[in-house]
């Protein structure tokens, strides 16, 4: 199974290639350089993994929420590759990707992840955040405990005894990461392709979509005044 993943939904530009069992990824903070960086990054990774676009089986894309333009750059580029190579696509939530990264870092530092709730918040500007919260389920799959939404900077009462607060929303609203149950705050965390590829590998085939259906989840839909 060969997968290319593209994500430019946040300040980070990140891409990854899964070639058989080998994973290669790249990550760069480039708030305004997504258009220039993402494609060369992807091509570099394919070269590193010694495969070509023609060898791919699946295209993953960061479907947001995040910067509208950033989300569209990765999604549209992925759509172009998918239709020209007749490939299925799979969209990964930037919030789920961040949560997967937070769980990975917990494990890497030897912490128990079982009763942890990872709260993810991305600064959505205009006094709001994109938020969601997750726990780890069977086979390390993410279980959503707070659905994705754009809201005022608040979270419902936690469902775990320990909370990890992850994402730029906690940098913008530090009080949001307060509370006795919070064991770790990661206010500078950004989505990384390695976590997205790990999520894609766990997804069932039924999650695959055609390029026509590959639409971002903007969450904020009130974008025009009447």
């Amino acid at each position: 199974m060969n997968i290319l993943y593209l994500d430019s939904s946040t300040e980070a530009c990140t891409a990854g290639v899964l070639a058989g069992d080998r994973v290669v990824t790249d990550f760069e903070i480039a708030p305004r350089g997504h258009a220039e960086k993402l494609l060369p990054m992807a091509e570099g990774l394919l070269e590193q993994a010694q495969i070509d676009f023609a060898d791919l089986d699946l295209i993953g894309f960061g479907r947001g929420p995040g910067s509208f333009t950033g989300v569209r750059i990765a999604t549209a580029m992925a759509q172009g590759i998918a239709i020209a190579r007749d490939l299925p696509m799979v969209g990964i939530s930037s919030l789920a990707c961040l949560a997967a990264g937070a769980f990975r870092r917990l494990e890497e530092s030897g912490e128990n992840t079982r009763d942890v709730e990872v709260r993810v918040a991305i600064d959505a500007r205009m006094g709001e955040i994109y938020r969601a919260a997750y726990r780890l389920g069977e086979l390390d799959g993410l279980i959503t405990v707070v659905e994705e939404a754009v809201t005022e900077p608040t979270f419902p009462v936690a469902q775990g005894s320990r909370v990890v607060a992850c994402g730029t929303g906690f940098g913008r609203y530090p009080a949001l990461g307060g509370g006795s149950e919070v064991i770790r705050v990661e206010p500078e965390a950004l989505p990384h392709a390695r976590d997205a590829l790990a999520l894609i590998r766990k997804l069932p085939e039924s999650e695959r979509i055609a390029a026509d259906e590959a639409v971002p989840s903007y969450l904020r839909d009130k974008v025009a005044g009447r």
């Binding site: 258009a35 494609l39 676009f53 549209a76 590759i81 239709i83």
Partner: peptide, 20 residues
């Protein structure tokens, strides 16, 4: 419009790159 242009450009570049 910048956002509109970006969408078409990214899509076009994806096609071109993947077909070499």
């Amino acid at each position: 419009l910048a956002g509109a242009l970006m969408t078409g450009a990214a899509f076009a570049k994806g096609i071109a790159a993947s077909r070499r």
